[in-house]
Design a protein around this nucleic acid. Structure first.
Lengths: 358, 358
DNA sequence: TATATTTATGTAATCGATTACTTTAAAATC
DNA sequence: GATTTTAAAGTAATCGATTACATAAATATA
């Protein structure tokens, strides 16, 4: 009952060979119109469906693409994935999604596992280095940070970074202009009359966080505001972490009058702490986040944030992948796409009468 | 350079046959310890990696499992997926995630596409019927609602529903006790002194929404409160929709003093509308949501909600799948797991001095 | 020592689809 | 009518791994 029909079944029924059936199904020109129609009709009648595994084995292409993200439970990554899917599904590709939960060890495991599954490419946002990694060392003692990706590159499997990238020869990337996003956010705070702007950063070995830091710094300098290193604190992009470090900032002799965070989640933590201490937002302290997560808009006290057009980012990453696949083994030319960020101005930073973006 | 080593390469190098190599790699007992070690060492040296496509073709198992959800951009579904992954990854399975965005047409497309990819099973939460579906009719004119799943069942591909299920012979499911979750939430509101409790429902052709509705109703009856149909409104599980229908509720001659919503998102919409109209929460109106999305805890005005232990739900769904796979073609015995919900009491419904859960 | 029994390996088919190469038959050309 | 060209279909190898069956070599038993 559940045995699947193969081209051999069709061939037998029609008294022709499997080769002919295959040609008919693949629109091969070397076949008569009559047999093609006959095969097509019979195939439909017999409920034939191509076995993609066999096809994949023969062609060396699995039509599966791996997508590795820190977590899918964030609007940003979910939206990027949606963009990727929108672009790849119509081309016959499937997307295998892997989460690293920001653990390097899982990143390694995932890549090997995808490689093993014969994916035709990997689109990923790299993880923050923050696990003890003991386990990883047991599993793969000698694998260094860069070897993870070299493994992919050696096998000629297209790799595309988005958002959290790394400069690796031959690897393309799609990011937003983080420097500008941070610059604009900081400039906005200055425009609102803020003078002592703190910065919730994150691991600055990662380009996105380094660039946001630099954009923030440059905006201060360009406005003649002294840069104060003590107002820059690193913390994970989580609510409790944001809250914890804000506590420290508020305990300073001269606490900040604004906070620009690299993450909406730590920005939310900051807000909770500020309100808990009985301070007013934005009158006493303004807050700006990054990523434009939906909750920033939902909050009663809506949060100003930098939009990264994630769906667009995903679509473009997918397009770059498709280009590389078509290029095949040709000399791989890196492609680097930089999208423009957009500041969404909301209540958490709007001191005056200006308009709210959304 | 990038040609992958196969067992034939290893065989040639060692002057043995591929069969022997295969046996050595698969821990087949019919082989000498000496050759096994030799093969293993050589394989490692030659960077051998098994081609899963070939293996899949031979065994008829792809070691891919499809997971279909309305959207991944919700903590609930993302957590279920995480649970599934935690259980399946160690067993060598990969998870292909598909989103339907609550469109039946996409549900159909996804299932066919997964079938085509030779997945070993499908774990899914069905979609709400809410698209015009014109496109779907063009693509697959005659496919009726139930045929979608029959297609899977006929091919003997294990299907497991979670959360949003449907009663289909031979199909297992993992859900929470929605009736109880709703009953507990409503009872809680009554305990807080509320007497006129509205209910934001959703398409009650779906079991989960029907059961939540029934639980709500039963709690009223058990407490001697008259059930008022005009206080029950259906709306999509989205913020703007929740807000819209709340507007109607507040415009009633006798507006409600509490709202129990089947969704945290529509609950949030309700809260926005209530506050916008200058009413107080929970003094004037209490609000309880469903799903325990993280934002319900994050809000300054935290939202009472029903937790569905999504990670657990995912793990169990995966386990049920594994059981069915092991059972193979044996008579399939349906398995129906029902998890217990937990009411998380927070500010949005806490009139008195009782304790907040989290 | 001859025979029976293990043990280790080889041979070849299989999973389903594709494709270079060949063959057959029909149509075109001289 | 004989020969060349073209169209359509067949043959068989291939992708990489697995495995039932066959065989050879080593060991145990009589």
């Amino acid at each position: 009952m559940s045995k699947k029909t193969t081209i051999y079944d069709i061939a037998k029924k029609l008294n022709i060979t499997a080769a002919t059936v295959s040609r008919a199904l693949n629109n091969n020109p070397k076949i008569s119109e009559a047999t093609r129609e006959l095969v097509l009709k019979t195939a439909a009648k017999m409920n034939y469906e191509q076995n993609r595994l066999a096809q994949a084995l023969k062609s060396g292409k699995s039509y599966n693409v791996g997508v590795i993200v820190p977590r899918i439970d964030s609007n940003f990554f979910a939206s990027v994935i949606r963009g990727i899917e929108e672009e790849l599904y119509p081309m016959g590709y499937h997307v295998i999604i892997c989460q690293t939960h920001d653990q390097k060890s899982l990143e390694l495991t995932n890549i090997n596992s995808l490689l093993n599954a014969q994916v035709d490419g990997v689109i990923m946002s790299i993880s923050n280095v923050n696990d003890a990694d003991d386990e990883a060392h047991v599993i793969a003692p000698k694998v260094l940070e860069d070897d993870i990706f070299n493994n992919l590159i050696k096998k000629n499997v297209p790799l595309i970074f988005f958002d959290r990238k790394k400069d690796i020869k031959g690897v393309s990337s799609v990011v937003i202009d983080d420097f500008r996003g941070a610059y604009d956010a900081t400039q906005h705070l200055i425009d609102q009359g803020k003078k002592r702007i703190a910065h919730l950063s994150n691991n600055r070995e990662m380009e996105i966080f380094k660039n946001r830091y630099l954009g923030y710094k440059q905006a201060l300098i360009d406005n003649g505001i002294e840069f104060d290193e003590s107002l820059v604190i690193e913390c994970y992009s989580k609510v409790p972490d944001g809250r914890k470090v804000t506590q420290k900032l508020l305990a300073l002799d001269t606490p900040p009058d604004a906070i620009f965070s690299v993450s909406d989640f730590s920005a939310l933590g900051a807000i909770k702490e500020i309100l808990a201490q009985g301070l007013r937002i934005p009158e006493d302290i303004s807050v700006v986040g990054f990523s434009n997560e939906p909750f920033t808009k939902f909050m009663e006290l809506s949060i100003t944030s930098v939009d990264q057009s994630p769906t667009e980012m995903g679509r473009i990453a997918a397009k770059v992948f498709l280009e590389e696949v078509e290029n095949g083994n040709n000399v791989k030319s890196e492609k680097h796409v930089v999208l423009s960020p957009e500041l969404m101005i909301r209540k958490s930073s709007l001191s005056k009468y200006s308009a709210i973006t959304v």
